[in-house]
């Protein structure tokens, strides 16, 4: 499987496809802009923007569609690579990027931010912080019973997620139903509609750090997925390795979630799709996850913002596309798939 030509083709596909999709997404939207106009804007952007007649069209392409496409890509990529890494590490196909409580924790942080501060900076910061805190708590729970660390860790994640979900419900209960509650509800559904360059930059830093970290230990994830004892005999420090994976996936996921809200399914489905295409080797699987996950969310967001004039919430679409797919995958893996 790992022959050089195949890898070359795969690598170029992973780089070219996102670029192509980002470009395509500049051309599609509710606002009618001719293909010719968009080319003019792309080639001659700054000059075009000086003309007040066309300033809006310039803004649309460069300041609304482009940051949104980029944000969709990095968020999708971050969620899938984290999901893929965690699935490998836990040797469990049902794990996703929010497994250790990041999403629920970040949701709670965002609720706090919306209710008490109502400004973006605090919402992002609190979401990120509580995402990390949730994972830390799961990790501590995982430490309690040391002889089966992965199982307790997963359990810890489930418990912490449940606690934070309950806290979210409580925040919704106390929130002002006219002004705060709609914001909270919408945040929890996940959306990229507010994307701008600043938000994208904020999200990019933790995502890039997390993703790079995961990339660097992807061989060790392969070893971890053999099981703890086997990994130990191969000379891998399983505890350290697991900690690195957990830290990196949490940072990447929290970075994505704090800006875009909780977007389900991407971190669960994409690694499975990719596994069917490139197999189980994390060295190949994870980078491809990054690219494919990014493209998937990009396309879903494109649908969300352009099919009807009232934006469809992203969480609805990812589940509607991802849900049926997941069933198909389950069916196939049962028949001797890649797990």
């Amino acid at each position: 499987m790992l022959n050089k030509r195949y890898l070359k083709v795969l690598t170029s596909a992973c780089i070219i496809l996102p670029v192509v999709f980002i470009l395509i997404s500049l051309f599609i939207g509710r606002y009618d802009l001719g293909i010719k106009d968009i080319f003019t804007i792309l080639v001659n952007g700054q000059n075009w923007s000086l003309d007040p007649e066309h300033a809006i069209e310039y803004s649309l392409v460069y300041e609304i569609r482009l940051p949104r496409a980029l944000l969709a890509f990095i968020v999708g990529g971050a969620l899938s690579i984290s999901g893929g890494a965690l699935q490998g590490m836990f040797r469990n196909p049902l794990v996703d990027s929010g497994m250790l409580g990041v999403s629920a924790g970040a949701g709670f942080g965002a609720c706090l931010g919306i209710i008490f501060f109502h400004n973006n900076f605090m919402i992002y910061t609190l979401a990120f912080l509580f995402g990390i805190i949730a994972v830390l708590l799961s990790f501590i729970i995982g430490k309690i019973y040391d002889s089966a660390p992965t199982v307790t860790l997963v359990l810890g994640g489930v418990v912490i997620s449940a606690i934070f979900s309950a806290l979210i419900s409580f925040m919704k209960y106390v929130a002002d139903p006219l002004e705060k509650l709609p914001t909270i509800t919408f945040w929890l559904m996940g959306s990229l509609s507010r994307a701008n360059f600043q938000d994208t930059a904020i999200a990019l830093i933790p995502i890039a750090v997390g993703a790079l970290g995961i990339m660097l230990v992807r061989w060790q994830i392969n070893v971890l997925s053999l099981g703890d004892r086997e990994a130990g005999t191969l000379g891998v420090n399983t505890g350290l390795c697991r900690a690195i994976v957990i830290v990196c996936t949490s940072i990447a996921t929290a970075g994505a979630v704090c800006v875009s809200g909780t977007i389900g399914w991407v971190g669960l489905i994409i690694p499975h799709i990719v596994r069917m295409i490139v197999g189980n080797d994390n060295r190949v699987l994870l980078p491809v996850c990054l690219s494919v996950g990014g493209c998937f969310l990009l396309i879903v967001d494109l649908i969300a913002r352009s099919i009807v004039s009232t934006e469809i919430p992203l969480g609805v679409l990812t589940a509607m596309v991802g849900g049926p797919f997941f069933i198909v995958i389950l069916k196939r893996t049962k028949g001797g798939g890649s797990w």
Partner: peptide, 28 residues
């Protein structure tokens, strides 16, 4: 949920926009 910004920008484009605080308090 949210404003569709592209739909809003279409012609004829509004010359004034009347919103409720829920939207205007949303920084992004």
């Amino acid at each position: 949920n949210t404003l569709n910004i592209e739909e809003l920008a279409k012609q004829p484009r509004p010359e004034v926009l009347i919103l409720n605080p829920e939207v205007t308090l949303d920084e992004s």
